[in-house]
């Protein structure tokens, strides 16, 4: 049997980053299984992100990789890919998506570093479901949620965040330093709301009848205004 494969494994601050090589998915999974078998003691108890490159993967394929890693007691927490299908499947499985190769180093934290970074030319990510506690959606461009964002969930966007539903989780718009980013929701009651470097909490008392609101940075502070303006 060929001993060599093109799987690259490196350590980052957030755990291991396992980068699969090119070639068919099944072959790469087999190669990963052999690597895990050989180094079982090394992997045990760790957490890992999987870099699958531009491959479009479905949920069951990602689940297959997750279960394989779980067998060696490795917790798969994130999948990195440049394919939209893979990102969507990752989100649906409740894992964290990491976009593009620039996050590969991982040791600086994928987003929210350095204000001087110009906003990357990224499109929008549309998520059509309820985002539940423990689920995290991270995207360098705009994030649009059609559904509710429950308390305990996190939305982190390089630009705007728009929620067509209730927003009760933690939200960070303009996470790369863009102060012009806004957060809009039909019921804007986040646990915590951040825009660029600014942080705000929702008022303690809940409104009886929520109205759509937009939060933005105005004169150095986050303020929420009802939508539409009166």
């Amino acid at each position: 049997m060929r001993e060599r494969d093109d799987i690259a494994i490196k350590g980052t601050r957030q755990g291991l980053l396992i980068a699969l090589g090119e070639g068919p998915w099944e072959a790469q999974v087999d190669a990963l299984a052999r690597r895990l078998e050989k180094g079982a003691a090394f992997f045990r108890g760790g957490r890992a992100a999987l870099d699958v490159g531009p491959r479009p993967l479905n949920e069951s394929q990602i689940r297959q990789a997750r279960d394989l890693l779980a067998r060696y007691e490795v917790d798969l927490w994130a999948v990195q890919s440049t394919a939209d299908a893979t990102i969507l499947a990752t989100v649906r499985l409740g894992l964290s998506p990491i976009l593009g190769p620039e996050a590969a180093a991982g040791d600086t934290g994928p987003l929210r570093e350095g204000k001087e970074t110009p906003a990357p030319p990224a499109g929008g990510l549309v998520v059509e479901r309820t985002v539940r506690s423990g689920q995290r959606i991270e995207h360098p461009g705009d994030v649009i949620i059609i559904g509710d964002v429950h308390a305990g969930a996190e939305i982190i966007a390089g630009r705007h965040v728009i929620v067509w539903g209730k927003l009760h989780g933690v939200v960070h718009a303009g996470a790369l330093g863009d102060e012009r980013a806004v957060v809009c929701a039909l019921d804007l009651a986040p646990t915590q709301l951040r825009i660029a470097d600014h942080i705000a909490r929702s008022p303690e008392e809940r409104r009886r009848r929520p109205v759509p609101e937009m939060a933005r940075v105005h004169k150095g502070r986050i303020e929420a205004v009802p939508w539409p303006h009166r």
């Binding site: 499985l93 309820t130 539940r132 506690s133 423990g134 308390a151």
Partner: peptide, 15 residues
């Protein structure tokens, strides 16, 4: 309820 929400998300993810 918060933990239940987390688990519901995982169940949905499992199909």
């Amino acid at each position: 309820v918060r933990d239940a929400d987390r688990v519901i998300g995982l169940i949905e993810a499992e199909g």
